[in-house]
Design a binder for these strands. Structure first.
Lengths: 111, 111
DNA sequence: GCGCTCTATGTCCAATATGACATACAGCAA
DNA sequence: TTGCTGTATGTCATATTGGACATAGAGCGC
């Protein structure tokens, strides 16, 4: 019931360090969700830099702010998947590319 | 392939911010974002039914409620991608399967 | 050193999503 | 018909996310 919610909130407070695989207390679904966010966050940064855009430029494209973009790329707990997806789409990334980012998530799991 | 169906559901979901939903007035990014949600919503329903779960059962797994699951499957505008992703993961769907759902969301007819 | 640009982090509060609840509807069986 | 099960839809109080802003840090050329 509240178990996953509470734990998610808890983890959100300090999950910016390192690989998602070391969250030993997370259930597989929770771990995958976190890894998903990390993968998309990394994707946003990668594509943005590839384009030579600043965070402020992407923010403007999104109608958001530089600080939000920074948090997003840091996979801050206060940033939703929605914003990440919108960012990728705002950079013209195709769903097939997004799918690639997601497909990579399941690979590394044991810890 | 499912353009008209997607559009119908989109209209049913009351998707645009202002007037009656019209798919064709959305920018390409906005349209892709909506289609992404539609695809994931359909995926949630498909996998749930495949498993023989009721909406209430999935809701319990999620720590959510039947009404929210119903809205989610209807791609209601009040439901985030986060909840959809969590739902898929809660059903044990692998990221590679989710990637498949997303990969299918390629471009629709340009305005 | 300074100044400039880009990024990180933290705090506001308005906007939005949330679960819970009520209730209506659809289908089916007795 | 009634009763039961599952789904749809609307509302609401509370929780969470949003953009905006301030500010600090990092890197770089001068």
């Amino acid at each position: 019931m509240m178990d996953s919610e509470a734990r998610k909130r808890l983890e959100n407070a300090g999950w910016t360090a390192g690989d998602a695989a070391d969250f030993l207390e997370l259930s597989p679904e929770e771990a995958r969700f976190v890894e998903l966010k990390l993968a998309l966050a990394a994707g946003v940064r990668r594509f943005r830099e590839k384009r030579g855009w600043t965070q402020a430029a992407l923010a403007q494209q999104l109608g958001s702010s530089q600080s939000r973009v920074a948090k997003m790329e840091a996979a801050d707990g206060s940033v939703t998947l929605d914003l990440m997806m919108r960012s990728l789409l705002a950079m013209g990334i195709m769903p097939s590319e997004i799918a690639k980012l997601i497909r990579k998530v399941e690979s590394h799991k044991a810890a």
